[in-house]
Amino acid sequence: MCKDNAQTTQLDTWKEVEAFAKRTLPPHVVEFIEEAQREPHPESKLIKVLQLVQEHYGYLGKTQMDAVAQLMQIPTAKVSGVATFYHYFRLVPRGKYMIRICLGTACYVKGAERVVEKLKEELGIHFGETTKDGLFSLEGTRCLGCCGLAPVVEINGEVFGQVTPDKIPAILEHYSEKTD
């Protein structure tokens, strides 16, 4: 996927840099950037581009961010500035299943804290970490807007409502079995 030592490759001309950047990013992202360049304010699409890159790789690697900076002609400092500012972006690879537990108020008063503890205990990881087998990553998230179903846990886009600590093992098992 991403090789950080690629940075050391000698790239002298813009053509080489451009070709390298295009090789690094998935074709649909390159296409999106090229289209953006033809419209006014192309630099404003940076967040969208980073979102596309993350959707593809699951995180933002340094090589990819450099390639985005080159192709969009935006300073690398700014690209990484944006990537580190927003919660949505991850700079390290994540597990196959992203477990996001809602930390909104409604979930909090309905006992999300205990669900968090149970998740951490079951998985043996903290927020922002990934299990050793690469299956699960854990993340606390802003309000998912399903307050009526609090507490809420989302796993790869699938939402589980009224989760209690007791339900956690079954939910996790459902996913770990999927891969077998």
Binding site: H41, S44, K45, G81, Y86, Y88, R142
Partner: peptide, 25 residues
């Protein structure tokens, strides 16, 4: 335009920065 998870972007000047592709401050 999609936000990328920053509460402060609800503030109007921060939101504008975010649409412009900047850090939402």
């Amino acid at each position: 335009r999609l936000g990328a998870g920053a509460f402060v972007c609800g503030e109007e000047t921060a939101l504008i920065h975010s649409i412009e592709g900047e850090r939402g401050q």
